[in-house]
């Protein structure tokens, strides 16, 4: 091993990256932000789209792994984010997956449940869209959809359980 390689192996053991003072931190943050803003202006539309698609994938994975039901984690919100990351007009997406723009709008606005065919088309579309971005498990759309269902049902348990319970009995109980 060369001396250079030894140095490389050693530099990775630890980094103390804490700023010595608030002043140093603010000063570094200011020059970093100026440089970043200059670089951000140079980003292409493609690079921004890729970052947004990766962001969406990571958000969806987070919801699958740690399901917390709120408005942000609704299937329709993920769908909206997906379409708006790629298209300037939602109607163009509707055309690309051969669905009626009105139906699409109803799904996005939670006025209609997505049909199986819609989700299947979305899976195929996203598989193509993510091809050059990152690995993407297309079944995640179904996982999100069903996770939403579970979260919604369990969040409303107090409302539906009393009435449903009246209709359910066990006439034969197996004794173990």
């Amino acid at each position: 091993m060369t001396e250079d390689n030894n140095l490389m192996m050693d530099v990775e053991y630890g980094i103390d990256s804490r700023y010595k003072s608030g002043l140093e931190s603010v000063s570094e943050a200011t020059i970093l932000m100026e440089a970043r803003l200059r670089r951000m202006k140079m980003l292409s539309k493609d690079q921004i789209t890729k970052a947004k698609l990766l962001q969406l994938k990571l958000k969806m994975e987070e919801f699958i792994n740690h399901p917390i039901y709120d408005n942000h984690n609704h299937f329709s919100n993920f769908l909206k984010f997906y379409i708006d990351s790629i298209y300037s007009k939602r109607s163009t997406f509707a055309k690309d997956i051969n669905v009626d723009p009105v139906s699409l709008s109803q799904v996005i606005n939670n006025h209609r449940e997505p049909k199986d065919e819609f989700i299947l088309k979305l899976m195929i579309h996203s598989e193509k869209a993510y091809k050059d971005v990152c690995s993407f498990n297309k079944k995640i759309w179904y996982q999100i959809y069903f996770n939403n269902k579970i979260c919604e049902i369990m969040a409303k348990q107090e409302q539906w359980q009393p009435e449903i319970e009246k209709q359910v009995r066990i006439s034969e109980v197996t004794k173990f």
Binding site: M8, V11, S17, E28, I31, R36, Q47, A51, K52
Partner: peptide, 30 residues
């Protein structure tokens, strides 16, 4: 999203390593 940034403060002697290995950029000490 597209605005994301990860930063660290590095001593000059090891900065080059992080630039080469992780494609980081150096601005000031960061």
């Amino acid at each position: 999203g597209e605005l994301a940034c990860v930063s660290l403060k590095s001593k000059s002697e090891i900065a080059q390593h992080y630039m080469d290995k992780y494609a980081m950029r150096l601005t000031g000490m960061t």
